[in-house]
Design a protein around this nucleic acid. Structure first.
Lengths: 343, 343
DNA sequence: TGCGTTATCCAAAGCGCTTTGAAAATGAGT
DNA sequence: ACTCATTTTCAAAGCGCTTTGGATAACGCA
C-alpha cells in the first residue's frame, strides 16, 4: 500500500493525504480523520526511503562498531549504552544504524554513512587521545556527539563524559586516607582518553600525598576479566605487593577478586579494591550493600543523554557547542578497608 | 556531489556513469576507468536512499531491541552477537539497523521496519516458547532468521540455535557420573525457549539416573550476577543443599562463585559448578585451563552464521527452509569434582 | 559499398514521497 | 448578486538514483 493507492481509495490527491497524515494545518479536520482512519485500516506506512529522499532527512543516527575483535569499546559497555540511546531515539522518531569497520577504515565508515545520506547524525564512542575522527566529523559538517572526550583535540565539539579524573582522584585519596601506600592501578588501554584521565587522577592523588608512583603497579590493557586476574596475580608476586587496587571496570574487578581468592587473601581486609562501575544492568554491584567500593556512573544513562544532545544538535545546528560532565559517585562497599599493618 | 553533477563534469549521461560505477558490461573500459577516477577524486557516494528507492532494496538488516530495562536478551550476549553479525553484514554490503520497542509494541516494530521499506531482512533474537512474532514475520513475507527456536511454533522458519537440551543433558550426566545427586539448575527465564530446552535436558538426565527433580533446586530468572549469587545463597541454606550447580551463563556463574566463597565453600571440591559459556570476548573462561567446567558455544560465531544465513535467504527467497543446530562443547575446568562424601 | 552486428552511450520514465504554486470552494461583507 | 479573503484541495515538479528502450557509432564481412 503506497500513497498513490491510498489517495485513490480516498478519492483525494496525494498532496492532501500526505498533509493530513503529517499534521499540516491546511486540511479539513473531517478529511484528516477520514484519511487517518483509512491509513490505519489499510496498514499504510510511508516508505522511509522515499520520505527521506523528499525531505532530505533520514531519521537515523549512525554508530560505528570497530571490528578488531578485541576493541575496548565494543564490549561490556556497548549493550547498555546502546539500549539507553535507542530508547531516546525512538521517543523522537529516530532509528539507529550500525556499520562495521575495521580499524583502518573507521574514518571512511563515518564519511560514507553521512555522505551517502544514510544518517542524520553520528555518535562517536570510545575516543582515544588525539582522536583524529573528531576533526574528520567536524570537517564533514555532520552533527555528532562524542561519548567521552579527547585530550589534544582543540576544535570545539559536543560531548558527554564522566569526570574520570576526579573519580579516580577521589578513589585514590580514599585509599590513601585508609592508610594504603602501595596502590595499584589496573587501567584500560592507555591510548583511550578515559584511561589517560583516570591515570591522571590517580597520579595526582599520589602526588598530593607525597607518594611516588611505581611503574610496576600501573597496568594497562583491555578490560577483561582475565586481564584483571592476570595482572593482580602478577603484582601479588612482587616483593612489595600492593595493598590496594583500583581497577577500571567491574569485569576486571571480578578477575581481581578471583586472583585474591586464589592467593588466599581476603578482599577488603588484606587487599582493598575499588572498581569503576558502569552500572550495567546484568552486572549490578550487589543488591543493597555494594560488593565493591566503586566510582559509579550509569553508562545507560549516558547513552540516553548522548542521544538527546545529538537530537538537539540536529535540530539546531547553529547552537553553541554543548558539553556535559557527569560526576561519578563514590559508593563504599565491602571491598575496601584500612591498610593491613605489615609489622 | 551527486550523480548529475558528476556526469556533467565527465560529459557523460547519468546512465553511463551509473553503469560504469556499478560494473555493468555495456560500458567501455576506458570510460569506466575515467568515471571511477572522477568519482574517487570528487568523493562521490551514491545516495543510499535514492538508490534504495530505485532498486527497491535498502541493504539494511533490522534488529529490534526490546526496551523493558531488564529483558533477557539485551544484555550480556547482545554485544558479541551483534559484533559477529555486523562483520558479516559489512562483508556483503549490508548495514544494520536497530529500532527500539517496548514489550507491548515489538510486533508493531517489526512490521513497521519492513513495511516502511527500511530493511530487507530481520533478525529475531531471544525467542520465547510459542513465539508469536515468528508467525507475524512469516505472514509479512519478510526474510528473517531466528537466533534460537520456538517450541510450539509449527510454521517452518530459518533458525540457528545451540543444542541446549543436549548440552545440559550431557552436563548433568557428567555431574551424576561424578557422584552428585543433589544438582541444582539456575536457569534463565523459563518463558525463554532456550531455558526450557536446558531444563528438559537437565530433567532427562535426572530421570535416566532415577533421580527425582526437586523444585527447590530449580531456579529461574534473569541471568545476572546478583541472581546467581542470590539463588545460590538461598539453596545453600536448605536442609539438604545441592552439591552441584548448573547455571545458564558465565555472569550468573560468577555470582554463584561469590556465594560459595562467602559460605566458605570451595568450588570444585565442596560444590561443583557447570556454566553455559557464550564465549564472550570480555569474559573468557580463563586463559589455558578453564575456570568453570562449561558447555561452550560462541555467540559471536552464531551472530556471524545468522547473518550469512539471512543474507542467503534474502538472495534466494524460495530456497527451502534452512536450520542450523550447533553442538556446544563440554569443556572441563576446575569447578567440578567428585561429589563430597557427607558421611 | 551496403548491411547486419555489436559495442557504447543516452533520454526519459519511474521508485514513493513532500512541497510549491495555483485552482476551486466556501464564507463574509456590502 | 458580486467582490475579496480564506479555507481546502490539487497537479506537477523534484529529491537522486536505476533501468528500459532506443539511438548512434564502430566493426565485420560479403
Amino acid at each position: 500500500m503506497n500513497l498513490k493507492q491510498l489517495s485513490e481509495i480516498l478519492g483525494l490527491s496525494q498532496t492532501t493525504v500526505s498533509r493530513a497524515l503529517n499534521g499540516y494545518p491546511e486540511v479539513n479536520e473531517d478529511t484528516r480523520l477520514r484519511v487517518q482512519a483509512a491509513a490505519a485500516k489499510h496498514g499504510y506506512r510511508p516508505n522511509s526511503r522515499a520520505k527521506g529522499l523528499a525531505t532530505g532527512r533520514s531519521m537515523v543516527i549512525g554508530h560505528v562498531i570497530p571490528s578488531s575483535s578485541q576493541h575496548e569499546m565494543v564490549n561490556p559497555i556497548f549493550g547498555d549504552f546502546v539500549a539507553g540511546a535507542a530508547r531516546k531515539y525512538s521517543d523522537h522518531g529516530y532509528d539507529m544504524m550500525f556499520t562495521n569497520a575495521d580499524d583502518t577504515s573507521i574514518e571512511e565508515a563515518y564519511r560514507s554513512l553521512f555522505q551517502r545520506g544514510a544518517v542524520d547524525g553520528i555518535v562517536l564512542q570510545g575516543p582515544k587521545v588525539n582522536e583524529h575522527r573528531i576533526e574528520v566529523l567536524t570537517r564533514m559538517g555532520v552533527p555528532f556527539i562524542v561519548h567521552g572526550r579527547s585530550t589534544g583535540v582543540d576544535v570545539p565539539y559536543d560531548w558527554i563524559d564522566v569526570n574520570n579524573k576526579s573519580s579516580f582522584l577521589r578513589a585514590t585519596r580514599f585509599l590513601i586516607d585508609l592508610g594504603h601506600r602501595r596502590i595499584a592501578l589496573i587501567n584500560g588501554l592507555e591510548d583511550m582518553d578515559f584511561a589517560q584521565r583516570r591515570r591522571d587522577g590517580y597520579l595526582e592523588a599520589l602526588h598530593e600525598a607525597g607518594l611516588s608512583p611505581d611503574p610496576e603497579l600501573m597496568r594497562s590493557a583491555e578490560m577483561t576479566e582475565v586481564y584483571g586476574h592476570h595482572e593482580t596475580r602478577d603484582m601479588l608476586r612482587l616483593v612489595d605487593p600492593p595493598t590496594a587496587i583500583l581497577t577500571a571496570s567491574m569485569i576486571s574487578a571480578i578477575g581481581v577478586r578471583r586472583a585474591l581468592n586464589e592467593a588466599g587473601l581476603k578482599m577488603g581486609k588484606d587487599v582493598s579494591v575499588i572498581a569503576h562501575d558502569d552500572d550495567l544492568s546484568y552486572l549490578k554491584n550487589g543488591q543493597d550493600v555494594p560488593i565493591f567500593t566503586a566510582t559509579r556512573s550509569s553508562v545507560r544513562r549516558a547513552g540516553e543523554m548522548a542521544a538527546e544532545m545529538l537530537i538537539e544538535r540536529i535540530k539546531s545546528p547553529e547552537d553553541p557547542v554543548k558539553t556535559r560532565l557527569l560526576e561519578a559517585e563514590l559508593v563504599v562497599g565491602g571491598s575496601t578497608g584500612p591498610a593491613p599493618n605489615r609489622f
